[in-house]
């Protein structure tokens, strides 16, 4: 008979890892970082029809110091790159990165002098969401994949 028998139905027990992961994935706060066209589909995902609020994510923090998820939505240009990296560095641990759209994943259709060919050359990306732009449902699917990834993380990883 474990401790649950004595406590009855009033208390939940779980491993610390599971609890921490559950807390982390259930209220991931994104840093508002829309760069280009994908930002519009991200905004639509926040609006009433697709509703990111059911995942606890409707608060897009303007300040990166209060955010834990960086959704890089749009093309990263060489001029913008230092700002992206600085925002990432300003975010406190634990933090995750989603590369949303073809441009953030690999440069997209813009194989030119001014475009970074994928933000994963500078930041550790956790989930890539392809599309140009990906539908809001695709963004939500990517976020759910990130949730699954977080639930399997070890405490010592982040």
């Amino acid at each position: 008979m474990g401790i649950e028998a004595h406590l009855g139905n009033n208390v939940l027990t779980a491993s610390l890892e599971k609890l921490v992961n559950w807390a982390r994935r259930s209220s991931l706060w994104p840093a508002g970082f829309g760069l280009a066209c994908c930002a519009l589909e991200m905004l639509v995902a926040v609006s009433a029809r697709y509703d990111l609020a059911r995942f606890g994510m409707e608060v897009f923090r303007p300040s990166p110091r209060q955010a834990d998820l960086l959704i890089v939505a749009g093309t990263v240009t060489k001029k913008m790159l230092p700002a992206v990296v600085r925002i990432y560095e300003q975010m406190p641990e634990p933090k995750w990165v989603i590369a949303m759209g073809a441009c953030a994943s690999s440069g997209g259709i813009f194989d030119t002098y001014a475009t970074v060919q994928g933000i994963d050359q500078y930041l550790p990306v956790d989930v890539y969401i392809p599309g140009c732009p990906p539908r809001p449902e695709a963004l939500i699917y990517g976020i759910i994949k990130l949730h699954e990834k977080i639930s399997q993380e070890k405490l010592t990883e982040r």
Binding site: L35, A36, T77, M80, F110, T115
Partner: peptide
């Protein structure tokens, strides 16, 4: 400006 200059 120019932070989204992609060389279009």
């Amino acid at each position: 400006i120019g932070f989204l200059h992609r060389g279009l």
